[in-house]
């Protein structure tokens, strides 16, 4: 290990602090949003294929995947509000998916579950993702 001079130590502290902040305040990676979209489609398709048992498993896996961040920053008042917003958008995505599925089923459209899943996926891409990114940015204070 190299010797630490005071100026080098201060530089190291700032560099490491920035690394922790970057990790803790990063929005969901694109592959996670893609996984969320795929989960919406899979849940919809699973209902069409009478594989309802798959639905809770998808929800559990998504819950675990969302915790895979290396750094958890302390929450602020603003970040809490954004977290509530994207949580509500996620619940709204599921609710809208179910409503659309029932409408499609009433209208006798083919694959109503998949259609509901597509609608939920759109809400995730255009609603949940951007709101979560705002929450992540607000964690930097």
């Amino acid at each position: 290990m190299p010797e630490l001079d005071p100026q080098g130590a201060l530089t190291e502290v700032r560099r490491r602090r920035a690394q922790a902040l970057d990790e803790g305040s990063a929005p969901w990676p694109r592959r996670f949003v893609a996984a969320l979209v795929l989960a919406c489609l899979t849940i919809g398709a699973a209902r069409d294929a009478d594989m309802n048992w798959l639905v809770p498993w998808m929800v559990i896996l998504l819950g675990l995947a969302s915790q895979l961040r290396g750094v958890r920053l302390p929450r602020t008042g603003r970040s809490r509000r954004w977290a509530v917003a994207w949580g509500a958008a996620l619940i709204g995505a599921g609710w809208l998916g179910v409503v659309v599925m029932h409408l499609a089923r009433t209208a006798d459209w083919p694959l109503p579950g998949t259609i509901g899943g597509v609608v939920a996926a759109l809400v995730v891409v255009f609603g949940v993702g951007p709101l979560q990114a705002r929450e992540a940015r607000s964690l930097r204070g």
């Binding site: 290990m1 190299p2 630490l4 130590a9 190291e12 502290v13 560099r15 490491r16 602090r17 690394q19 922790a20 902040l21 990790e23 803790g24 961040r69 290396g70 750094v71 958890r72 920053l73 302390p74």
Partner: peptide
């Protein structure tokens, strides 16, 4: 010391930091 200073600096702004993140960073 470099190692302990790095660990403490990464922990300073955070609530919790995973072992894997500390090791990799």
């Amino acid at each position: 010391t470099p190692a302990r200073l790095s660990v403490m600096s990464l922990l300073a702004p955070a609530e919790w930091v995973t072992f894997a993140f500390l090791r990799d960073t």
